[in-house]
Design a protein around this nucleic acid. Structure first.
Length: 761
RNA sequence: UGGCCCAUCGUCUAAUGGCAGGACAAGUGAUUUUGGAUCACUCGGUCGGGGUUCGAGUCCCUGUGGGCCAGCCA
């Protein structure tokens, strides 16, 4: 289901290394609102990954805040997730079921001196927390003794205090640059009843406390969430590390996906409903699952859409055309074709006499390959679509106009003979003649403009047709000036009084159809009845004719982007770190750039900026003095990457050992590629020479040994050789890669390159 | 005067130092009793600068741009 991404990569490794024996994921919505298209994407990743790996999927109501949470929402969420097709077996959980365990763990934290009751008022807590640029300071209550903390916390639970009088906090680090770690709040007092636990509790756990521990309790392995929780991961790890054993869950964050012409903010959705801009949470214009469902979109289409949207570590906005494609692609194979007329225009067939004729009409076009048909009544009076007639047709018009011929779908060819108008000049009726011998075959003498849909006026059923379209007029309402309300699309719902085929009465009410040339429709599950048929348009058909004028969308975007890059390229002067150097550092800079070391300015600066690094460099050069620049390159580009924050280079790799590696490279005993492999091995403790000797990694510089390898690769890829000679020189990298692989990475690359070029001339 | 995360066709995404590929969108043609679908083809991209390397979208530095963090929300 889920295409490979950075998370599945982690899972692959975890399974391979047997860190976990199976994968367990969870989707943890808070039951304080309805599910929307955004929930789809997140839950798809959770469920899809569990499914793909044959693991377990949990649905968990993350109900840790009694305010706003309701059973009604929980039930709706469960229904929506079921509708999407996610299967959690018996694994449906509620964080509120863990309250006892969470409380016990809080007691344990207090006893271990890792949590304390703080009694600062709310605004003081905020002030003490500091800001993103300034460290926080410790609360005067931070060092209460364990007994006092225990007693206070128990009394909090017992309801002896008012809201806000005390809170329980983790004792971590008030000065941490990650503000989430500045003694996060674990429990707060809330004298409110909870929709599930009633009045049993008056203290409630915070998300940052309840969420990781709920994961751990359930044995979740990979806890996936969106990007805004990256900072919270530090608390997650702190809590789970101190309270649980391995294997324990780990959190991974993915980028949110928003959708063009859509908003999903809970607050804004409520505004749409409460402001009467839509008719409720299940209004088909709403991006809620309830809305999509009522509109007629199938869960299969939604799932297909979700699987087509990629996963990455960046927030992205998905082109709504992708959703529309998924919906059409699903319906194309699901919906039988019938005819419906949205805006009827009366047509009288002047040369038709006698009884109604019943024509056989296939439900499916040939390319779908499904069987089935219905009888279609044809008679003297018909309806066609107003849009399908033009008295003065524009260029390229493939429909009916005076004197022209069209095919009536599944029926006869007609010609427009006469246009009847009312006093205002509006066309009210068409007089046409039909060609009785045109049924099922084309007439050689007649050139038809196209095929249009129609209905027998006598038999057609009146129906209200609700045409839904994008909710907003702009792709990103949030990015525009003013309120998003200003950008609501007034045409997101157009109501037409039209007609549909009577054959719909023979079908189940939940049938989805394609009204040919118009779009996909189904009966509104709430409002449609036998007395009054109401059809929702699920999605229109692709219509190049209608959209032929509105070209420049992509061009505009490109233009915009071009402008932005231009602006971006204008500014930008790197800060010179030398300006903040001490005298000692400046002297050192001079020394490293002098003939003795001969380092480039930039490299020297980079080393000097970090005292431990420059010391390490000097030590390494002392051990192998022949090539300081090479040494600097390796320290800057390779070693430094392996260093954690504040980790000293020597603790990772002894300078003497690095010097040994540098020597091997400098003496051309090994090539660069092998050197990187050796380097990785060295971090585990061995010395360079030992590794090279043990694995026989010495560089191959013998031309006679390399030539057969090259010949072999060239012989195995005659097509590529041809392409190369034809000018596709980018393939040299391909050949290089192949030969290097053949040599076990040991070939001298420069030599190989020269030889390949020689042979390919 | 902070910390963290991120940057590939118009959009979404792949390439695990070795041929920048796919999907959607757009365009052209074939086909068509749906201006649908299908098929074929085309267009189009590694944010800028430096460095490491035989070779960089990928590693290092830097600039630019974007996002997140100061709820007793989640």
């Amino acid at each position: 289901m889920v295409s490979p991404n950075f998370i599945t990569e982690v899972i692959d490794n975890d399974l391979k290394s047997e860190k976990y024996s199976e994968v367990v994921t969870r989707f943890p919505p808070e039951p304080n609102g309805y599910a929307h298209i955004g929930h789809t994407y997140a839950s798809f990743i959770d469920y899809g990954i569990a499914k793909d790996y044959g693991g377990r999927f949990h649905l968990r109501m993350d109900d840790t805040n009694p305010e706003g949470e309701r059973m009604e929402y929980a039930e709706a969420l469960i229904e929506d997730m079921q509708w999407l097709g996610w299967d959690w077996g018996e694994h449906i959980y509620f964080a509120s079921d863990y309250y006892d365990q969470l409380y016990a763990m809080a007691i344990r934290l207090i006893k271990e001196g890792k949590a304390y009751v703080d009694s600062l008022p709310e605004d003081a807590i905020s002030e003490y927390r500091g800001s993103v640029t300034e460290p926080g300071k410790e609360s005067p209550f931070r060092n209460r003794n364990i007994e006092e903390n225990l007693e206070l916390f128990e009394r909090m639970r017992a309801g002896e205090f008012k809201e806000g009088e005390h809170i329980l906090r983790a004792k971590i680090d008030m000065a941490n640059p990650n503000m989430k770690l500045r003694d996060p709040i674990l429990y707060r007092i809330l004298h409110q009843s909870h929709y599930r636990t009633g009045d049993k509790w008056c203290i409630y756990p915070m998300y940052d406390y309840a969420h990781p521990l709920s994961d751990a309790i359930e044995g979740i392995t990979h806890s996936l969430c969106s990007l805004e929780f990256v900072e919270n991961r530090a608390i997650y790890d702190w809590l789970v590390d101190t309270l649980f054993e391995e294997p324990r869950p780990r959190q991974y964050e993915f980028g949110r996906r928003s959708l063009e012409y859509t908003i999903v903010s809970k607050r804004k959705l409520i505004q749409l409903v409460d402001g009467g801009h839509v008719d409720g949470w299940d209004d088909p214009r709403m991006p809620t699952l309830a809305g999509l469902r009522r509109r007629g979109v199938t869960p299969e289409a939604i799932r297909d859409f979700a699987s087509r949207v990629g996963t990455s570590r960046t927030n992205r906005t998905v082109d709504i055309a992708l959703l529309e494609y998924a919906i059409r692609d699903d319906l194309n194979h699901r919906a039988p074709r019938i005819m419906g007329v949205l805006e009827p225009l009366k047509v009288v067939i002047s040369n038709y006499e006698g009884e109604t004729e019943w024509l056989e009409a296939d439900y499916w076009p040939a390319d779908i390959g499904k069987a089935g048909s219905r009888k279609l009544p044809f008679g003297k009076t018909l309806y066609i679509e107003q849009e399908d007639f033009s008295e003065h047709p524009p260029k390229g018009f493939k429909r009916l106009s005076p004197g022209e011929y069209v095919r009536l779908r599944h029926a006869y060819v007609i010609r427009c003979d006469e246009v009847v108008k009312d006093a205002s000049g509006a066309v009210t009726e068409l007089h046409c003649s039909y060609f009785p011998n045109s049924l099922g075959e084309n007439l050689k003498s007649i050139k038809i403009k196209g095929a249009i849909h129609w209905l027998s006026a006598e038999h057609a059923l009146k129906a209200e047709l609700r045409l839904y379209d994008r909710l907003f007029t702009v792709p990103n309402p949030d990015d525009e000036e003013g309120s998003f309300i200003d950008y609501l699309n007034p045409d997101a719902l157009l109501i037409k009084e039209g007609f549909v085929e009577a054959s719909v009465l023979d079908d189940p009410e939940s049938s989805r159809y394609q009204f040919e040339r118009q779009g996909y429709f189904w009966q509104d599950p709430e409002d449609s009845s036998l007395e009054k048929l109401v059809f929702n348009r699920i999605i229109n058909l692709k219509d190049p004719w209608a959209s032929r004028k509105e070209k420049p969308k992509a061009e505009k975007k490109a233009e915009l982007k071009g402008m932005q890059t231009k602006v971006a390229a204008q500014v930008g002067e790197p800060l010179d770190p030398v300006l903040s150097f001490t005298v000692v550092q400046k002297n050192k800079l001079e020394r490293l750039q002098s003939k003795v070391f001969g380092l480039s300015h930039d490299d020297a600066v980079m080393l000097i900026a970090d005292t431990s690094l420059v010391n390490y460099f000097e030590e390494t050069v002392l051990a192998y003095p022949n090539n300081p620049q090479l040494t600097a390159n390796w320290i800057i580009n390779e070693l430094r990457r392996e260093l954690g924050p504040a980790e000293s280079p020597a603790s990772k790799l002894k300078a003497k050992n690095l010097a040994e590696l540098i020597e091997l490279i400098d003496q051309e005993v090994i090539n660069n590629r092998i050197a990187k492999e050796v380097f990785a091995e060295m971090l585990k403790g061995k010395t360079a020479r030992a590794i090279v000797a043990e694995k026989g990694l010495e560089q191959v510089t013998d031309q006679s040994a390399l030539e057969p390898l090259i010949d072999k690769v060239l012989a195995a890829n005659p097509d590529k050789v041809e392409a190369y000679k034809g000018g596709k020189t980018g393939l040299s990298g391909f050949f290089m890669g192949q030969v290097m692989r053949e040599s076990g990475g040991k070939a001298n690359p420069q030599l190989v390159k020269d030889l390949i070029e020689q042979k390919l001339q």
